[in-house]
Amino acid sequence: MTAVYKAILNLVIAFFFVISLEGIARKITARIQRRIGPPWYQNFIDIFKALSKHPFSNGWIFDFGVLMALGGAIATAAIIPMGSTFWTPFPNTDNFFVIMYLFAVGSLGMAMGMVGSGSPWSAIGVSRALTQMLGYELPYLVVMSSVMYMYKTSSIHLLIEKQATNGWNLYVMPIGAIVAFISLIGMLGKKPFDIAVAPAEIASGPMAELSGKYMGLLQIMHAFSIFVEVGLFVDLFLGGGSLGWFLVKFIVVWVLATLISSVLPRFRIEQMLKFYWGVPLGLAFLNALFVLLGWTF
């Protein structure tokens, strides 16, 4: 039963913490652009306002896609360990591949619902999003495989525990950590890689048809996704620690990603692929080689 409470706590933290962080990211970007920016709680207002509107639905698959996206994101967020074995809701199921593929349910649901809206802009956006996935997942998964190979486990809470004795993976395999961070920016859809929702090119792509509560639900889904993505990075590369430390590290990673993204323009789709399959993938294999040879710190 405690697992259920922990999972609920996961979701609560994912919701309130990440949505506040999104507001703070807007604030940070605003400061770089020499503005004041919205209050930190602006995203809560935005979400609840969106939910309160009278939306348009483009057919049942549109509804189903949004529900599937949110459902998948909730399911994934509930498994993520928060920095220690104690804060691991399901120690038997927190397998890395399970998380990655469960996470894909949300992506598939979103893609399906958005294309189901019948808008070609959404279809273009989704095709870009899927292509982008091909880009960032590859180096990320190679780095993750080397992490798992090194510690002989793919269970996240065990990986956290191992880091407690062995030192953070950030120090153990710095190359891998950098590659994973670059992939993380792509996963978050932040600036050089926000190709899927480029508003000026394809009218915000997948989101073109979202109105009212669909927008709100997808923003909540987005918050859970950020929790999963950044949470995984923190768990796997920045060691463990208490819940508080986990959240602090979470903030640091998030702010860093926000800062980087606010001064970069976006790639074109194949430039993104060439980028990811160039240096980061090479470095990921180099990292894997170091791990194989035992050349880790």
Binding site: R35, I36, P39, S204, M207, M215
Partner: peptide, 15 residues
């Protein structure tokens, strides 16, 4: 800076 008041541009009429 009208984003202070929560006014933000959006791409499509639906949103």
């Amino acid at each position: 800076d009208m984003e202070r008041f929560g006014v933000a541009p959006m791409a499509t009429p639906r949103q």
